[in-house]
Design a protein around this nucleic acid. Structure first.
Lengths: 199, 199
DNA sequence: TTCGTCATGTAATGGGTTACATGATTAC
DNA sequence: GTAATCATGTAACCCATTACATGACGAA
């Protein structure tokens, strides 16, 4: 597991343009949902790791438009509040990002990881997206089978709360699978249109 | 955060009776669902921590019925495959477990933690359960508001995949809330019956 | 002047994962 | 005799969280 979910997400956001840490943190919760919170204590070390690995570098000092300056010369143009550092993705970083995005399809079982990859699906071709979606679906179906297996074995002996927890897990997993099915259909439709257009 | 989710779960299972590590691991995935997998690399150190803290101790050497012995004396009664260690919860451990189960209601925001506590709800009185459920519901409603806020701000600019991810997050959160509402209603019904019975 | 927000970082701590080591028992 | 399952553990590595330190800017 060479790359963490967070590293992947950061690289994905940096692909859109240079960004500094503080901004990155906000964008992360917008892109991945508010349930996915990152602390600066993980973010800045992560940025440092990316820099060391050569996937990102400190870029141009963030021009960020300074609002409302009619008379410009008067005040010194202090562009930053506190020395703000913009990070940008390197060429090697882009290659690495694509690699991870593509190949992750094969081995990733963990939900966070899948979500992170999914958030950047626009960078992948339809066939790779399809593979990833189907892989994820198969994984969840297997988990569903395990849920049902443990229900079959112990349902009677379980107390109401454990049972409710498991039942809810089953329901959530089913909903995830339905979501994936919708996405798979949509991808197939696109692929179909493309094929017809080529003829 | 004195106690981890895993520690709590292990104590909860040990409350039902002595158990050894290997068995514990299986029971964990039955009780908390197959999505919740624990490796021995976390489980055994966890057991060690519990022992050191005085919440658990190595108990009686696991009598575990040896199946099918018509003539008993013949073979030496080797009861264990490889020296199996049964752990049991101590009195201090029980007190600690209840404390955590009760007070956790206040501060826990993380899903895993809530699930773990929920799995042992049978040990709590109705009013504490209600408080915990309502607290969790309020938390998720706040997250839902944050979801909607970020949708309101950026929906137009988001690509289809990010949007789908967020939409699905909203749906999942709503489902969780509905689940909690059902549970809350059930608790209130019980509380109502009790009150009427007392009169 | 004080509060809220913007902004970057480090240190300590701790737990999880993986990989590895070891070994008994059962069933084929 | 060998594979599968039962069974316990350790060590290295790594990452996340928390708490802390620092500091500028804008507005009330």
């Amino acid at each position: 597991m060479a790359v963490t979910s967070l590293e992947l997400a950061v690289l994905g956001l940096l692909k859109e343009g240079p960004m500094h840490g503080y901004e990155l943190r906000k964008r992360l919760s917008v892109t991945l949902g508010p349930l996915y919170a990152v602390s600066y204590g993980s973010l800045y070390p992560c940025l440092k790791r990316l820099r060391k690995a050569g996937w990102a570098r400190e870029g141009t000092p963030a021009p960020k438009p300074r609002r409302s300056r009619a008379t410009d010369e008067a005040k010194p143009v202090r562009v930053s509040r506190r020395a703000r550092k913009a990070y940008e993705i390197t060429e090697a970083g882009e290659r690495f990002f694509f690699d991870q995005l593509e190949q992750g399809a094969v081995y990733d079982t963990d939900g966070d990881r899948f979500q992170t990859r999914f958030a950047f699906f626009r960078y992948l071709p339809t066939d790779i997206r399809l593979r990833a979606l189907e892989h994820r679906k198969a994984y969840l179906e297997q988990k569903l089978a395990e849920f049902n297996e443990s229900l079959r074995l112990t349902r009677e002996r379980m107390d109401a709360y454990s049972r409710s927890l498991i039942d809810h897990g089953v329901e959530t997993t089913r909903q995830d699978i339905r979501w994936l099915e919708g996405l798979i259909d949509a991808e197939r439709a696109v692929a179909g249109v493309r094929r017809r257009a080529r003829k």
